[in-house]
Design a protein around this nucleic acid. Sequence first.
DNA 1: TTAATTCATCGTATATTTGCGATAAACAAT
DNA 2: ATTGTTTATCGCAAATATACGATGAATTAA
Lengths: 106, 106
Amino acid sequence: MAQNKKNEFVRSEIELAEFAKALSHPARVAIIKAIAKRNSCICGEIVEVMPLAQSTVSQHLKELLNAGLIQGSIDGTKSCYCINSRMFEKFSKSINKLFVITQDQE
Amino acid sequence: MAQNKKNEFVRSEIELAEFAKALSHPARVAIIKAIAKRNSCICGEIVEVMPLAQSTVSQHLKELLNAGLIQGSIDGTKSCYCINSRMFEKFSKSINKLFVITQDQE
DNA sequence: TTAATTCATCGTATATTTGCGATAAACAAT
DNA sequence: ATTGTTTATCGCAAATATACGATGAATTAA
């Protein structure tokens, strides 16, 4: 954009937007689902079920990590990812809070 | 991107990603909050409380409309927007579904 | 030690998003 | 009729996101 105005907003709005952005690509939703289904996944397993190159999947994983929605640990040459339930719950609550405000008034 | 791979994914994943994308910018979260607070808003009221040009706000409103998270109606020269609770609830449930799968397995 | 495996990161091309001013379109007020 | 309001859309510039192959770094296997 010409200028970035994202910092003109309130902290909570920025945080919710960051969570939402992490899920704003089907690949990242699919990755979350894949990890959730198996409880935890090594990177290679995710790459196998994804129609994307390994480097691309790795990039999406990084974004999910940055948003805090997943956690990663290294095991030898392999990287193991799991869902960060705490963050996910926080996200879910933020969404519902928006929604509840709405319901209160109609 | 070199190629667009978004259509390689499952319908439900694409839909959730689209909802998430609608909320993936702080301005759009702020707009939702503004509308929810007053129950409904004319466009000009939203522009007033937003640190963005009128044309930019209009663009964000359009994206929220496209995602179905808000509804709009025209009243004279003014445009009135309100939350689409039904869609919002659908979104909330999709998120929770992802989350519940997670909780089931840990 | 050498070769193979696994994965993150870099560089790059292309697509999409964000933001604005200018303008158009529709109505209201004079 | 003319003028002012209100809002959507167009056209553009700049910033980000998406995707890939190539490469590097770390470990494991031979």
